[in-house]
Write a protein that binds this DNA or RNA. Structure first.
Lengths: 158, 158
DNA sequence: CAGATAAACATCACGTGTGAGTTATTTCTC
DNA sequence: GAGAAATAACTCACACGTGATGTTTATCTG
């Protein structure tokens, strides 16, 4: 085999995308067993965060908040509803919109979730200011790559 | 309703885990359409990165490198093999191990992938040193959360 | 007002990441 | 050397995240 010149920018450990991928996997793996004990998956936990913080929401508002396309939330909300944590209903004046509201059990779960969050935050061994700095860098990255929301208007070339 | 005290640590935008989740999603969404043109998904691209860099590998070595459980790679490797990018074979002296090797087409694809990587890196609008710094912070986080599963050479506990 | 367009949500198919369980092979222990 | 334990890979079931498509409702346009 000849030693042809290979591209020089593809070393796995040099890829920011892989560092992100591995870090996200690691964090979710840290959360998973703790969330499992309170009956949530990680994406379900994120939806609950939105609802604990801001109260009732339309489905598409939750999706915007999480930078996800809305249509993936339907089965997830099905499971949370079946678990008795939230209720959905359509309502005038716009009957297209499904409003999502926590049940009493859903509200109550916040205390247990807060304990889970503290546990994982502790595992990271990061000082609050380091944590804030990293979070802000990631936020800037998202703004750079997706200035419009994930579900927003696509400005693709025709 | 009484204003009961709510946990104070659960604001969505304060969560590092959500910043990671959103950033990873954004980066993968940046890669997806470009990778689609060269016939790869994002996880398939990561596997190809490992093979382009280091040549032949056992399946469990690829999994270690990507910090993933090995058993999820089987169907992924099926697809890459079916696409003609790699070949697998068991081999003495240890016939449990499946060795994965790129085909000529798999090797050739590296040039197109390098162009994709440069495109996305450019979209981030990050200077190389900012990029390196962020990558290192994420790497530290992974080491903190999953010291056993750190990427790179595995230093198993004696 | 009628028809077209858009929005909100749901459904289906596919690839992935994970847990549980299987099979084949190797290595350890007696 | 025989049986037990460990290892490597695979399979199945489930929950996402995404693209394509459908249904219902609201809004825009003529």
């Amino acid at each position: 085999m000849l030693a042809i010149d290979r591209p020089t920018n593809l070393r796995l450990d040099d890829q920011l995308c892989f560092a992100l991928y591995a870090a996200t996997n690691a964090v979710v793996r840290a959360y998973r067993p703790l969330l499992h004990e309170i009956g949530l998956t990680y994406p379900q936990y994120l939806v609950m965060l939105v609802l604990w913080q801001d109260g009732e929401h339309a489905v598409h508002e939750i999706a915007d908040r999480l930078a996800l396309p809305a249509h993936g939330l339907s089965p997830l909300l099905d499971r949370l509803e079946e678990a008795g944590l939230l209720a959905r209903r359509r309502q005038a004046p716009d009957r297209r919109v499904v409003h999502v509201r926590l049940t009493a059990a859903g509200v109550e779960l916040e205390r247990a979730a807060a304990a889970v969050q503290r546990d994982v935050a502790c595992q990271t061994q990061l000082a609050p200011d380091e944590l804030d700095a990293l979070r802000e860098e990631l936020h800037d990255l998202v703004r750079q790559l997706a200035p419009e929301a994930a579900t927003g208007p696509i400005s693709g070339t025709p």
